[in-house]
């Protein structure tokens, strides 16, 4: 693996290997403290994302490496009109690996085509967000003990929510995973995802109300209705409160159900849900650091056998 653009760049075996490494990092952090001494990651973020950027930077610092980069396209040479291809050629001279977020879909793919260092897609518009997917899968695997034979409900903005697209693509490769998509009709999952599920003969359904199916779920994946994905403010205001998880709705859910969320949360999960033992979204952030550490090591060819 040279770059990571899409969760499907990794085979199931490669993913499992990476999760084994992430789990070893979780349990033996000392072993990895200097493994990236002298290495640098460039975090090239053309749109702000505090959480993902800090997670990558924290991952590299935990490995003993260093961090350079920019947090926003407005402060980079992109603001002067530089192409992605030129930017990555320059960044390749400064760093050993690059994590790129860009508002335009496919931008990290263009970067990878022109790069001499590994490029990680850290989110490209409404398209893919593979490291969030790795985070989600590692969280489910670590907390549920398996990645097969369970039912996941994906709720909220499924049209523009790139995290959900990547997640569904990755989980579709495991045996016996059933999907329940819960969204308003305006924000339903794109056709290329449902076409893929139909082609593979994977069971899925689309519903409008969370309450109707919450009792069937082993994992509930909540997402934010993102303001920046709407062309029109009125549509955003009308839809943003459509799906809110409350302690009341949780009463009919399984005791073992995991509640995940890519964060940041606005109000789609009521604050009093945070104290419910099923709430796993802050642990998910910690798993995100472990899996990014594992990914950096793998792409740099520094991953030890575990």
């Amino acid at each position: 693996m040279e770059h990571l653009m899409n969760p499907l760049d990794l085979s199931v075996e490669e993913m499992d290997k990476m999760f084994d490494l992430a789990t070893d990092i979780e349990h033996n952090p000392e072993k990895y403290r200097h493994i990236c001494d002298g290495k640098r990651i460039a975090t090239c973020f053309y749109e702000p994302s505090t959480r993902t950027r800090l997670s990558f930077e924290s991952a590299m610092l935990n490995l003993g490496g260093q961090v350079i980069g920019f947090p926003d396209g407005g402060v980079s040479s992109a603001a002067k009109g530089e192409s992605v291809a030129d930017t990555i050629r320059v960044v390749s001279c400064f760093a050993d690996i690059c994590a790129m977020r860009h508002p335009k879909e496919g931008a990290p793919y263009v970067a990878a085509e022109h790069s001499s260092i590994p490029v990680i897609n850290a989110g490209d518009g409404g398209h893919q967000h593979p490291t969030q997917t790795l985070t989600d899968l590692l969280t489910i695997r670590s907390m549920q003990g398996r990645l097969d034979n369970f039912t996941i409900g994906v709720c909220g903005d499924l049209k523009f929510g790139r995290t959900t697209h990547s997640l569904v693509n990755a989980l579709a490769r495991y045996e016996g995973v059933k999907f329940i998509f819960i969204s308003p009709p305006e924000l339903r999952i794109p056709d290329y995802i449902t076409e893929m599920l139909e082609t593979k003969g994977i069971e899925f359904s689309e519903v409008i109300r969370l309450e109707d199916r919450i009792s069937e779920l082993d994992v509930l994946y909540m997402t934010r209705v993102q303001r920046e994905r709407f062309f029109n403010e009125d549509d955003y205001v009308r839809l943003k409160d459509f799906y809110i998880l409350t302690t009341e709705k949780l009463k009919s859910a399984k005791e073992s159900m995991l509640i995940l969320h890519p964060l940041p949360r606005v109000n789609e999960i009521a604050v009093d849900v945070d104290s419910d033992p099923r709430a796993a979204y802050f642990k998910q952030v910690q798993y995100g650091v472990y899996v990014r550490m594992a990914l950096i090591l793998t792409l740099l060819g520094l991953a030890p056998e575990v």
Binding site: A85, P103, K104, E105, A107, V110, G126, Y192
Partner: peptide, 27 residues
């Protein structure tokens, strides 16, 4: 929202995603 709408000098590439239904998708 595609990078091909702004990136200079980019080769526009479509691949055959589904032969039976003749569906092409942007690379």
């Amino acid at each position: 929202r595609c990078i091909s709408s702004i990136e200079q000098g980019l080769t526009h590439v479509f691949y055959l995603a589904d032969e039976e239904n003749e569906i092409y998708r942007c690379r």
